[in-house]
Design a protein around this nucleic acid. Structure first.
Lengths: 148, 148
DNA sequence: GTGCCTACTTCCCGACAGGAAGTTTCTCTC
DNA sequence: GAGAGAAACTTCCTGTCGGGAAGTAGGCAC
């Protein structure tokens, strides 16, 4: 059977206080914003929609976007995930959801100041991904050769 | 994909690397780095291990860490996920894996320059999470009241 | 020999993401 | 006035993915 002598002691020692602990609130928040859809939504609402190079001082014009606009821009996102992610971001105060009771109801989402401050970081992530993509792809191929 | 007319090629070149497109490599890379374990591992290997306040940008010493050190620091990560994430990061050239054939074999991981450049961003994410945590929690409670 | 150490690997299962179809509420058309 | 249609979801089913725990190698301490 299981020898729970040192193993359990170790497991308990593991749960001592630590900045990277699951119980730390910052960890929970980090888990939330470390999500691919969150990053993409923030990039989209931050006005980071130009494909070329966001490195330039391309004034990030935060613009409100409708649900269908986001759905079209973030190719590959399911409607469920888009709704779910938007709701959680709204709940956390990163964006506002505005319903306009027009003919077919229109819903637009816009970043708050809080969301905007995080957008600067996600913009950096997207920029990094586009900048270092070739490097990463090269490393990936080298590794496939190196590990037969 | 194989038989591509010149017009199509030009159309694709026109779009450059856009992380919003599902098929774009930069999007795949963004998906990979937008992962909670990736962010935490990069923070750990970047030397961002001070629990209290990373506001002071002093703990910027990238240090090599062993598998068991990471496992202990990133409480909550399963061994499977840790191994899997480390391997993919190694494959992408973000960190190096060094095996030292000591008594029990010792494996240490260290950030490469590429991983270090990304670490600056993940550090920002962690810093943002800790800075705006209270704000987010307040918004969250307000919303629970607003949606019965 | 038995057990333990590190750094994994494998198996199983529950949870969650994705896809598609259904819902609601309006207006315009036939 | 019945039906189509449009926007923004919501619900259901299913496949995949992550977590937990047990198993593996192989040298050393007892």
């Amino acid at each position: 059977m299981t020898t729970m002598k040192a193993a359990q002691k170790r497991a308990q020692a593991k749960v001592e206080y630590n900045a990277f602990l699951a119980g730390c609130p910052s960890r929970q928040l980090l888990d939330r914003i470390s999500d691919k859809w969150v990053v993409l939504i923030l990039c989209a609402l931050g006005g980071d929609t130009s494909p070329g190079r966001p490195a330039a001082a391309h004034a990030d014009a935060p613009k409100a976007m409708r649900y269908s606009e986001l759905s079209r821009l973030l190719a590959g996102v399911s409607q469920k995930m888009l709704t779910q992610t938007l709701r959680s971001l709204e709940r956390d105060g990163l964006l506002t959801r505005t319903v306009t009771p027009t003919v077919p109801v229109t819903v637009s989402y816009e970043l708050t100041d809080l969301g905007l401050s995080l957008h600067h970081l996600t913009r950096g992530l997207r920029s990094w991904a586009q900048t270092h993509m070739a490097e990463v792809l090269a490393n990936r191929e080298n590794h496939e050769v190196g590990t037969p």
